[in-house]
Simulated scan of single mutants.
Amino acid sequence: MSIGNSPEDERPFEDVTEEARPPIGRVLQQARIAAGLTVDDVSTATRVRIAIVHAIEADNFAPCGGDVYARGHIRTLAKAVHLDPGPLLDQYDAEHGGRPAPTPAAPLFEAERIRPERRGPNWTAAMVAAIVAVIGFVGFTMFKGETDSGSKDQVAEGSTPSADKSSAPSAGTGKPTDPKPDPTESAIAAAPQDKVTVQVSATDGRSWISAKDHNGRLLFDGLLKQGESKTFQDSSKINLVLGDAGAIQLYVNGKKIDDDWQPGAVERLTYTKGDPQEG
């Protein structure tokens, strides 16, 4: 009979204290679902192709075209679904051989100093510059005239429409002009009645928004920072997608939309001409 530990007692202990981390793609997919976004929404917001988004969520980074592009896509998708990209990038580096080495900077060479030669005035260059200046002044004058003549029929983003001539006092009557509108009201209150005008303002935070006209043409797709606003106009219909509706204030055809949207809620809205109404 032998004294001591048996062979079974000498087996190495398995380290089971560290839980396996979930795959990067699964983390991004679960965060996207929790944010109420589809793959198409994320692709539209980030400009990452739908096929690549699907591949990354399946933990397949080959379609990205390399580690540098894969890390960039991970960072972009993480921000779109409100995740900190740092831990995901560290996990990717650990699983794929570390962070890519930086490209070495090209050596700098000191330019050879050349003694300038004395030259007379370059009359040709002066004449060309004078001709360009004249052409530029004429073009600017014509453009300014066209802009002034068409300003009555256009509503530009951030501009205030001109006051209606009917509000001016009649000659010789001495009657005061109509009172100015409340400065707290949106400037789009004077928008044409035969069109639909929508102003989107990020009053309580930032939000990704997307706007399309009645033909499905994309008018805007991007992040609206707090304090910024965008105005969209179409002949019949405006389609909106709000990534964080709780941070947005809407004015439609000059009227404020008082909807109690929750922070982080994704809203898809359609507005038409006349009294504000959702399509």
Rank of each mutant, 00 (worst) to 15 (best):
I3E: 14
N5L: 15
D9S: 11
E19Q: 12
A20Q: 06
R21P: 02
P22Y: 03
P23R: 06
V27K: 08
L28P: 00
R32C: 00
A34P: 04
L37E: 06
V39N: 04
D41C: 04
T46G: 06
R47S: 13
V48C: 10
R49K: 14
V53W: 02
A55K: 04
A55R: 04
I56N: 03
I56K: 00
A58P: 02
N60S: 03
P63L: 03
A70M: 04
H73T: 01
T76D: 07
K79G: 15
H82C: 07
Y92T: 04
D93Y: 03
R99K: 09
A101F: 00
P102N: 02
A105E: 15
P107N: 04
E110G: 14
R115M: 08
E117S: 10
E117L: 15
P121W: 12
N122S: 14
T124I: 08
V128L: 14
V132E: 09
E146I: 00
E146W: 01
G150P: 02
S151L: 13
K152H: 14
D153Q: 09
E157L: 11
D164A: 15
D164M: 08
K165S: 14
K165Q: 12
S166T: 11
P179W: 01
P181A: 02
T184H: 08
T184Q: 15
E185N: 10
E185W: 08
A190F: 12
Q193V: 12
K195P: 03
T197G: 11
Q199A: 12
Q199N: 12
V200M: 08
V200N: 09
D204P: 01
W208E: 10
A211P: 09
K212D: 09
D213Y: 08
H214L: 11
H214R: 15
R217S: 15
L218Y: 00
L219E: 12
D221W: 01
G222F: 05
S229K: 13
S229P: 05
Q233K: 11
D234Y: 05
S235P: 01
K237I: 13
I238R: 02
I238W: 06
V241C: 05
A247D: 12
A247Q: 07
Y251P: 05
G254L: 10
I257W: 08
I257T: 07
R268W: 00
T270F: 00
T270Y: 06
Y271S: 09
K273E: 11
G274Y: 02
P276C: 14
P276L: 09
Q277W: 02
